[in-house]
Design a protein around this nucleic acid. Structure first.
Lengths: 183, 183
DNA sequence: TTTTCATATTCAACTTGTTGGATATGGTGC
DNA sequence: GCACCATATCCAACAAGTTGAATATGAAAA
C-alpha cells in the first residue's frame, strides 16, 4: 500500500506525469524508496480507478500523450488517513547477513571479498550523500520542504555509516580468526 | 532467489522439516530475513522439484507426516554458486522516511507521535539484542558457527542504534523548528 | 472444562516487485 | 550516418511476499 502513498506525497507538491514521478524515485527518493517505472505506471492506473488521482491528457507530437496526474480531494483524505496510521519497521532481508551466518560453509576468501565489495559500495554511497549534505550547508536559507528532505538525507548518512562500521568489525574479526577451516 | 539460498544455509547445518525451518526464521533469522511459514513451505516444494533438496517422510499419529528435508549434492553446489555471486544491498523501502519527506503536509503532532513510537520499537529491539549479546560474552567458549551468528547480531545492534540516533536527531530538529505551519 | 498453544502441512487468492519487450521520435556524440 | 539517450506510455509474464483459512490432535493453562 505504501507505494501508492509515496506517490501521493510526490504528487502533493506538484502535479506530474508518471514519467516524472518515476524520475523522482530514481533521482531523489531512490535512497529510501525504490520503485521501477512499471510499478509507478501500474500504481497510478490503480490509484486513478480508486479516485485518488485524476489526470489531464496533454497531446504531444512524436511521443505518447502526457498524462499529468494530480491529487483529488479523496486522494488528500487518503493521505491524511495514512499519516494517522503508525508505520512499522520494514522487515529486513539482507543476503550479506545470510552469507555471514553461512560462515562455516563459505570459503573464507569469498566472504572477505564480499565484505570488501560491500564496504566499498556503502562508502561510495556515503560519499555521494556527504556531497549532498555539504550543498545544504552552503545554502543561505532553505525552505520547509528542503529541511525535511535534509532529515531524510541524514538517515541515509547514518545508514551507510552503520554498514561500513559493521563491515570493518567483521573484517577485523575474520583476520583474528584461525585461518579458513572450510577450505 | 535468496530465500531459497537462505533455506539451504539453514538446512546445511542440520536436516529439518518445513515447520522447523520456519521456526528458525521466526526465532533467530527473523532479524535480517523474514519469511512466513507459507513462503517456506512453497519454497521447499519448489526446491525439491529442482533437486536442491530431498525429504524423508516420517509418519506421525494425529499430525500430518513430517517431511525432513536435507541438502542434495546439487543443493550444495547451488549454495557454492550463490556464495560466489556478489550480493547487492537490498533496496530500502521505509514508510517513515516518506512521512518525514511529507513533513510539510503532515500535522506536526502526528509526525512527532510516529517518531516517538518508532524510537521505542527500535529501543525494545536493541534491548533484546543487548541481552543476547551479553549471553555470548558470558559463555566460556563458542564454536565457529556461534561466532558467525554473533557477527550477525552485531549488525542488528548497529542497525537499531542508527535508527534510534536518527529519531533523536529528527526530534531535536522538530523541536527547534517553528511550530506547525500545516495545522 | 473449555480454551489456547504447539505441532505439521496444504490450498487459494491476492498484492507487490522484477524483467523484458513494443512503440515512436528528436537530439547528441563519435 | 549510426549508435545511443531522453521522452512517454503500455503489455505480458513471472517471482516473491501476504493473508486467511482448513485439517487434526495432544498437552498445558485458565
Amino acid at each position: 500500500m505504501a507505494l501508492a502513498h509515496t506517490i501521493l506525497v510526490v504528487l502533493a507538491s506538484e502535479p506530474r506525469s508518471g514519467y516524472d514521478v518515476s524520475k523522482q524515485f530514481d533521482e531523489s527518493l531512490g535512497c529510501y524508496w525504490k520503485a521501477s517505472q512499471q510499478q509507478v505506471y501500474r500504481e497510478l492506473a490503480k490509484m486513478e480507478q480508486q479516485g485518488w488521482v485524476h489526470f489531464e491528457t496533454i497531446p504531444q507530437v512524436g511521443k505518447p500523450d502526457k498524462k499529468i496526474y494530480h491529487l483529488t480531494e479523496q486522494g488528500q483524505q487518503e493521505l491524511m488517513k495514512w499519516f494517522a496510521m503508525p508505520t512499522d519497521p520494514t522487515p529486513i532481508r539482507e543476503d550479506l547477513l545470510v552469507k555471514v551466518l553461512a560462515g562455516p560453509y563459505i570459503p573464507r576468501k569469498l566472504l572477505l571479498k564480499e565484505l570488501h565489495h560491500r564496504r566499498q559500495k556503502h562508502l561510495d554511497q556515503l560519499t555521494f550523500y556527504q556531497k549532498k549534505e555539504a550543498s545544504y550547508h552552503s545554502m543561505p536559507a532553505i525552505d520547509l520542504a528542503e529541511q525535511f528532505r535534509y532529515l531524510t538525507l541524514r538517515r541515509g548518512l547514518r545508514y551507510e555509516t552503520a554498514w561500513i562500521d559493521w563491515c570493518d568489525e567483521v573484517l577485523a574479526f575474520l583476520e583474528k580468526m584461525p585461518s579458513d577451516e572450510s577450505q
